[in-house]
Every structure is written in structure tokens, then in C-alpha cells.
């Protein structure tokens, strides 16, 4: 009889210790900003705006960080899915133009959801093709990966020009989502509130899938140790393709939200946010979804607060934040164990 067999069978595994420190950073940052900003109403406006921006960045970045974590592939062309998602929403906007101008809030939200659905379908398909054609031949070769995904991005961006033309396209928000809600002195743009709700919903779903389903378990296991998952008889490759497609679709979703936020479409918009996305996933720890979420919120909050307090500093603020975080935790907020 071994000692292990003696242990009562009901004894649960020791609980995983949750690292709360990074999670505290977000409320802490908000609290520190409050006296600096001075007025509560301005602070509420700024914070809501930042949360909306953070959600959008998170949506765009989550796919990238998972793909990296699972398969050690860094997709420099990730921005293309964002641009494509944004442009594809034009397909849905064409026949539904009446809904955009309608007074009915439900129709307004419906058109937004339709855009999102179309964009996610198309970018998901595009992600599948991208994985097949561009990424598959260069697994395990970082240098080539960077070059090839960059090349894929150039080609795809040019294709956007070919299909939709090179000039920026204005995009109108649905009627009911324009304007702001005013509570007391604090004004919150309606669209931003919707973005926050959408972002939180998606994060919630992602969290549930990753932590409460078998697929999620396999994905997390794959991030920790892909070989071991293979040895247990699961095809990590299929899992990876699935994650890649989902990640692309999420980028498309983020792209739609981002496009309505900017209210213009340009082919380079994905590449522009790509930089911010990289900063976010570095801050969060490459491969960590939770870290990515916190990183996105931190970046957006810092950008908005400094934009208000010291506009000159705002452009460097996210870089500065990254440096500070990396000095504290060189591998990001939530380092993924094997790397």
C-alpha cells in the first residue's frame, strides 16, 4: 500500500493560487486618477471612455495572445483581420441602410449585431485561409513567421484597396447610438456603454469556455505543454486551427466596434492598432488571456487619463506603462509558465 492510496479519495486537489496583485492595479489606477483629475463627473466620463476603449483593444488582442500561447506563433498580420472585419461590415450595412437611420433602438442595435455577425463569419473564414496558406508552412521558425505574416498583411491590405478602393470611407453610427447619456454632470457616450457591455459579455463567455468546458481545458493545457496534450491523444493542430479561427473572428468583432468608434474606414486602421495590441499582450504576458484583459484596461485608462492631464505625454504613455510593468515583471503580468 502506498501513501497515495491511503489518502481519502474525496480530498480535492490543492486550490490554484490566484495572483490578485495585477487585478488590483486597475481599480488602484482609477482611484489614483480621481484626485488628479479633480472633478468626479470628468473622471466618470474619462473612465467610461477608457473602459470602452480597453474592451475593444481586448477583443482585438485576445485572439493574438491565445494563438501565441498555444502554438508559439506571433501573427504580425493580425491587424488585417481588424481592417477586414471593419470593411466587411459594409456588406451588412448596404441592405440594412434603413435600419441605421431608423428611430427604433432595437433596429439600431440589430444592425450593429448584423455587422458583427457578418464580420465575424468573414474574418473567421479568412483566418482559416490565412492559417492554411500563410502560417502552416513556417511553424517553429520565428524569423520566417514574422516576415511571412508581415508579407501576408501587406498583400491583404492591398486587397482591401483593390476591393473597396483606397480612399477612407465614412461610417455612420446607427441613429439611436449617437449622443450621450448624461447622469448628473457626467456624460457618457451611448456607443461606449454598448462597447463596454459587449466587451464584458465576450470576456465572460471566453472565461466560461476556457475554464468550464473541455475544449477550454484542452486549450489551457496546450498553452502549458502542447506535447503532453498530443501524447494524451488529442490533435493539438485541430485545436489550434479552431483557436486561430476564433481569434480572427474576435479581431473582426473588435474591428467593427473600432470602426464605428472612429467612424471612418481606412485599410491601415488595423495596423495602427496593432502596435497598441502588441503593447497590451506584452504587458499581460504573452499567451495569457486574463493578463491581456487587464493589460488592455490599463493601457486604455493610462492613455485617457494622461490625455486629459498631460496631452503631450499621452503618446508615450503606453510605452512608459509597458516599461514600468516589465521592470516589475519582466515576463508580463501573468507569465505563462513554460516560456
Amino acid at each position: 500500500m502506498t501513501a497515495a492510496a491511503d489518502a481519502p479519495p474525496t480530498a480535492a486537489l490543492p486550490k490554484v493560487r490566484v495572483d490578485y496583485l495585477p487585478m488590483l492595479l486597475v481599480p488602484l489606477l482609477m482611484l489614483v486618477a480621481l484626485p488628479l483629475v479633480g472633478s468626479v463627473s470628468t473622471w466618470v466620463t474619462l473612465t467610461v471612455a477608457a473602459l470602452a476603449m480597453g474592451m475593444m483593444i481586448f477583443l482585438m488582442a485576445s485572439g493574438l495572445t491565445l494563438v501565441f500561447g498555444l502554438m508559439d506563433v506571433l501573427n504580425f498580420g493580425h491587424g488585417v483581420f481588424i481592417s477586414f472585419g471593419a470593411y466587411v461590415s459594409l456588406i451588412a450595412l448596404g441592405p440594412l441602410a434603413g435600419w441605421v437611420e431608423s428611430d427604433n433602438l432595437l433596429l439600431n442595435i440589430g444592425v450593429l449585431l448584423a455587422c458583427i455577425l457578418v464580420a465575424m463569419l468573414v474574418t473567421g473564414g479568412l483566418g482559416y485561409a490565412f492559417e492554411r496558406i500563410v502560417i502552416r508552412p513556417v511553424y517553429g521558425q520565428h524569423l520566417k513567421q514574422i516576415l511571412i505574416t508581415m508579407g501576408g498583411m501587406i498583400v491583404a491590405e492591398q486587397m482591401i484597396h483593390v476591393i473597396w478602393g483606397a480612399s477612407p470611407i465614412p461610417l455612420r453610427l446607427p441613429e439611436g447610438l449617437r449622443g450621450a447619456i448624461v447622469i448628473g454632470d457626467a456624460a457618457m457616450e451611448k456607443y461606449r456603454v454598448i462597447a463596454v457591455v459587449l466587451g464584458l459579455t465576450v470576456f465572460g463567455i471566453m472565461h466560461l469556455v476556457l475554464n468550464r468546458t473541455k475544449i477550454g481545458l484542452l486549450i489551457r493545457a496546450g498553452v502549458e505543454n502542447a506535447e503532453m496534450v498530443e501524447a494524451l491523444g488529442y490533435r493539438i493542430r485541430r485545436l489550434f486551427v479552431g483557436v486561430f479561427v476564433a481569434g480572427s473572428a474576435l479581431a473582426g468583432l473588435g474591428g467593427v466596434l473600432w470602426a464605428f468608434y472612429r467612424q471612418t474606414l481606412t485599410a491601415g486602421m488595423g495596423m495602427e492598432v496593432n502596435v497598441l495590441i502588441f503593447i497590451v499582450i506584452i504587458i499581460g504576458g504573452l499567451g495569457s488571456v486574463g493578463g491581456c484583459f487587464i493589460g488592455a484596461l490599463l493601457v486604455a485608462l493610462v492613455a485617457n487619463y494622461t490625455g486629459f492631464l498631460a496631452p503631450k505625454l499621452a503618446l508615450g504613455s503606453s510605452i512608459l506603462l509597458m516599461v514600468v510593468i516589465l521592470l516589475w515583471r519582466p515576463q508580463g503580468l501573468y507569465p505563462v509558465a513554460k516560456r
Partner: peptide
């Protein structure tokens, strides 16, 4: 549209991807 003068980068991009492979 594919051969428009401004789309030369498209072809160089394809050449780039092919040459990396």
C-alpha cells in the same frame, strides 16, 4: 483594379511571401 498603378505593392508583397517560402 489588381493591376492599377497604385497596387504595385500588392505584387511585391506576393513576391515577398513567395520568396520567403
Amino acid at each position: 483594379g489588381l493591376f492599377h498603378a497604385d497596387r504595385w505593392l500588392l505584387w511585391l508583397g506576393i513576391l515577398f511571401v513567395l520568396s520567403v517560402y
